[in-house]
């Protein structure tokens, strides 16, 4: 992708793009952990394909972040040589996989958010980001279709599938608070036309998500004051373990190619 002529990249602009790239990378990595373990072969393929989409989006976003930063770091350097405190993904992305219902609920909550986000980012003042958004939006629609169908199937399914889907929703729901927490990075990015303040997406997100959860006969947990802070680099204990696996090879064999 041709780097656009940049005047001055603000720290908020870089942080905003890095956050999107990290969210895609960490969610993609979690999905890829399912490869060979899904309950049925068709879902193994679907999860691996969605993982590929997210890792592909992460590559474009992190490459762009490297250009914005202007210090010569490429996608690989940013993905494999940063420590957990330097990652900007929302905590929800790094929550470890438990069962299939958990992955579908998580994918649906994040996917619904991505759908709104990419749709708004198509009009970004950052042309390269707008191009990535237009591409990702098409993929996000299939992610939401697939995970949303499963949320309904599991929630409105058997007693056991309902119990598992409800447990996953109860566990993950508090982490969605973080997505919409106001912060100076969002305010600056929104003011510069880079992208929406994530808090602005809360209402549309909740509307889209609640409609499907209702259809799935799932009970929406009450909002609590719980806050997580992955976007600000303060992660759960799970991210370090994920990075240890993901970064092991390039850290053990720097510059390895095959």
């Amino acid at each position: 992708m041709g780097a656009p002529a940049m005047t001055q990249t603000t720290p908020a602009h870089l942080e905003y793009v890095l956050r999107l790239g990290d969210a895609a990378l960490i969610h993609g990595q979690r999905l890829s952990e399912w490869c060979g373990h899904a309950p049925v072969l068709e879902e193994d393929l679907a999860l691996a394909n969605m993982a590929l989409d997210f890792v592909g989006q992460a590559r474009m976003l992190l490459s762009h972040a490297g250009v914005l930063e202007g210090k010569g770091r490429d996608e690989d350097t940013l993905a494999f040589l940063r420590h957990e405190g330097q990652y900007r993904n929302p905590t929800l992305c790094e929550m470890p996989n438990t069962d299939f219902a958990h992955t579908m609920i998580k994918g649906f909550l994040l996917g619904s958010f991505n759908l709104l986000m990419w749709s708004r980012l198509c009009g970004s003042s950052d042309e390269a980001l707008a191009a990535i958004a237009a591409k990702s939006l098409k993929e996000a629609r299939y992610h939401v279709e697939h995970t949303g169908d499963w949320v309904i199937r599991l929630g409105d399914g058997t007693e056991e599938s309902h119990r598992r889907a409800q447990a996953a929703l109860d566990m993950l729901w508090p982490y969605t608070n973080e997505l919409f927490a106001a912060n100076p990075t969002d305010d600056a990015a929104a003011a510069a036309g880079v992208g929406p303040a994530w808090s602005d997406l809360a209402e549309d997100w909740e509307k889209a998500v609640l409609a499907v959860l209702k259809h799935a006969t799932l009970t929406v947990p009450a909002r609590t004051p719980f806050q997580s802070y992955g976007k600000f680099g303060r992660h759960s204990e799970h991210l370090g373990h994920l990075l240890a696996v993901m970064q092991h090879l390039p850290r053990s064999f720097p510059g390895a190619t095959w």
């Binding site: 068709e42 393929l45 679907a46 969605m50 989409d53 299939y142 697939h146 169908d149």
Partner: peptide, 13 residues
């Protein structure tokens, strides 16, 4: 339809 995703991301099964 068996799955929205097939042997590659661009196809369903």
């Amino acid at each position: 339809r068996l799955s929205e995703f097939g042997s590659t991301a661009c196809k369903s099964l």
